[in-house]
């Protein structure tokens, strides 16, 4: 099992998920009804509404962003350098323990 932690924007809410490897972090969030992950386009990477922020340590460890992901993250309501789209992160041992900080707004 892979541990994924979602922290609400103001830090007041912390949800730990233990999910099976496979599928995306976005799918795991939607299946567990995480507030703050909207995922309007269902993982087709056209909407940007499943973005979250990670620490610089985690950011360095994650696979590289595609051009489209960079583009989408640039145009979210409050862009930051450490954003990722959860639909582009695969649930695997490699991200065990990752902490994802949710944005104030997805759209």
């Amino acid at each position: 099992m892979v541990k994924i932690v979602f922290v609400s924007h103001d830090g007041s809410d912390r949800t730990e998920l233990d999910v099976k490897a496979g599928g995306s972090v976005m799918e795991a969030a939607v299946a567990n009804n995480i507030d703050g992950i909207v995922a309007d386009c269902g993982g087709s990477m056209v909407c940007g509404t499943c973005h979250a922020f990670v620490s610089s340590e985690w950011f360095a460890k994650l696979p590289e962003q595609s051009e489209m992901e960079i583009c989408l993250l640039e145009f979210v309501p409050e862009p930051q350098d450490n954003g990722r789209l959860c639909c582009q992160l695969e649930v695997s041992e490699a991200i065990d323990g990752i902490v994802l900080q949710l944005p104030a707004q997805q759209r």
Binding site: G48, L72, F75, V76, P77, Q105, R107
Partner: peptide, 22 residues
């Protein structure tokens, strides 16, 4: 259909993004 729609989406997306709409 994808993948050929992606460059067009990418070109239009900034104008319709949450940031631009704000």
């Amino acid at each position: 259909d994808p993948p050929n729609n992606i460059p067009y989406r990418q070109a239009l997306m900034p104008a319709f993004s949450p940031k631009s709409i704000k």
